[in-house]
Simulated scan of single mutants.
Amino acid sequence: MIQDIQPHRFHVEYTPQEPEESDVVLIYMRDRILAKYKEGRIEYPLVSDIMSVFPEIGKKAKFLFRIDDQDYYELRKPEIEEFSDWSYQATTVLREASPMWKAFAGITGYQIHTWYNDTKFCGRCGTKMRAQGVERAMECPACGKVTYPTISPAVIVGITNGNRLLLTRYAAGHSKLKNYALVAGYVEVGEVLEETVRREVMEEVGLKVKNIRYYKSQPWAFTGTILVGFFCDVDGDDTIHLDELELSEGQWFEREDIPENKLNISLTSEMIQFFKSNPGNEFQ
């Protein structure tokens, strides 16, 4: 999955310091990222690259995180125009860009950058917020409210029926993604994760499920989400009743007929392929 960047190591600890010329700067303009992107490979500018068009980058850059021994920074403003071979690419290319560890860096930085931009004003009193400086948080100078990055929990559900797995496709008005997926949904207030599984399955495909078991989790920076994967078995009638507002298709697939997915960056893709490659149901 996209966060599996070994042998590289991601350090999320907040340890800001003045950037060096060899550090990476992730620069975003709305939903685009400044990069060199050619034949599927992505590269980000260094502080030294940005200095040629914005000499104040050393003072304006904001710390994001570290990968291995290299620090990553962002520039919240002013916005930098394209220059030389550097151009803005849609952040969606990070779903397919290589090497994958650089794609992970780009989209993780985007999640943090977006949170800062969305937290400019206090949600309690409306005063302009300021960065604390000692941790990744925004503080209101008027009422003292401290706000930390928002991470939304969601479940991914692999519904099994013997040798079959239920695959879905999103409705065009709900998502631009066209690949097969699993039932998924956000956790509501007051729910435990297993209750979310039952509710989302019933809402989206009209099925009762049992034997709910945890598989794996994944940070999914594309939507600011922590995904939690579960497998479960259909309980009783396996007739699908589709929620057509969210889904365009829901179908039982025999294990051997499940389509291959070459992009194994997501928890959904891994769970689908995991079921396909485990005919003995070893995950149970």
Score class of each variant (00 low, 15 high):
residue 262 K to F: 01
residue 134 V to R: 06
residue 135 E to Y: 03
residue 135 E to I: 08
residue 22 S to R: 11
residue 280 G to T: 00
residue 257 D to C: 00
residue 263 L to M: 12
residue 58 G to Y: 00
residue 164 R to V: 05
residue 12 V to H: 11
residue 207 L to P: 05
residue 179 N to G: 06
residue 151 I to N: 10
residue 145 K to R: 04
residue 207 L to V: 09
residue 117 N to R: 12
residue 80 I to C: 10
residue 59 K to G: 02
residue 143 C to G: 00
residue 215 Y to V: 12
residue 201 V to L: 03
residue 115 W to Q: 07
residue 120 K to R: 12
residue 184 A to N: 15
residue 52 S to R: 07
residue 269 S to Y: 04
residue 40 G to T: 01
residue 162 G to N: 11
residue 243 D to R: 05
residue 171 A to Y: 08
residue 162 G to R: 11
residue 230 F to A: 02
residue 242 L to E: 04
residue 162 G to C: 10
residue 237 D to R: 02
residue 252 W to N: 03
residue 159 I to E: 03
residue 167 L to T: 07
residue 178 K to I: 07
residue 41 R to A: 00
residue 47 V to K: 04
residue 245 L to A: 12
residue 216 K to Y: 13
residue 267 L to H: 11
residue 256 E to V: 11
residue 200 E to D: 10
residue 78 P to F: 03
residue 177 L to W: 09
residue 32 R to I: 01
residue 79 E to A: 12
residue 38 K to S: 09
residue 26 L to F: 13
residue 150 T to W: 05
residue 156 I to N: 14
residue 141 P to G: 06
residue 143 C to R: 02
residue 132 Q to S: 14
residue 152 S to R: 15
residue 228 V to I: 14
residue 118 D to N: 15
residue 12 V to Y: 11
residue 3 Q to I: 06
residue 54 F to W: 02
residue 50 I to C: 02
residue 124 R to T: 05
residue 13 E to Q: 09
residue 84 S to W: 07
residue 121 F to E: 05
residue 136 R to Y: 07
residue 278 N to C: 05
residue 45 P to E: 04
residue 233 D to E: 13
residue 216 K to H: 15
residue 256 E to K: 10
residue 270 E to D: 12
residue 278 N to E: 13
residue 184 A to R: 08
residue 261 N to H: 07
residue 102 K to T: 01
residue 46 L to C: 00
residue 16 P to S: 05
residue 233 D to R: 02
residue 108 T to Q: 14
residue 188 E to V: 05
residue 160 T to N: 10
residue 97 A to C: 02
residue 278 N to M: 03
residue 275 F to S: 06
residue 261 N to R: 06
residue 84 S to E: 09
residue 252 W to Q: 06
residue 128 K to W: 00
residue 207 L to K: 12
residue 244 E to V: 10
residue 47 V to F: 01
residue 280 G to F: 01
residue 163 N to P: 06
residue 208 K to C: 00
residue 66 R to Y: 11
residue 3 Q to S: 13
residue 156 I to E: 15
residue 29 M to L: 11
residue 75 L to W: 12
residue 214 Y to C: 12
residue 139 E to D: 01
residue 255 R to Y: 09
residue 8 H to F: 05
residue 140 C to L: 02
residue 136 R to N: 13
residue 11 H to I: 13
residue 268 T to G: 05
residue 281 N to W: 06
residue 144 G to I: 06
residue 95 R to M: 00
residue 43 E to K: 12
residue 176 K to F: 09
residue 277 S to L: 09
residue 231 F to S: 02
residue 119 T to E: 04
residue 135 E to D: 08
residue 188 E to M: 14
residue 130 R to C: 02
residue 158 G to E: 09
residue 42 I to C: 11
residue 165 L to C: 04
residue 91 T to D: 09
residue 119 T to H: 12
residue 204 E to Y: 03
residue 74 E to C: 15
residue 180 Y to A: 07
residue 170 Y to N: 15
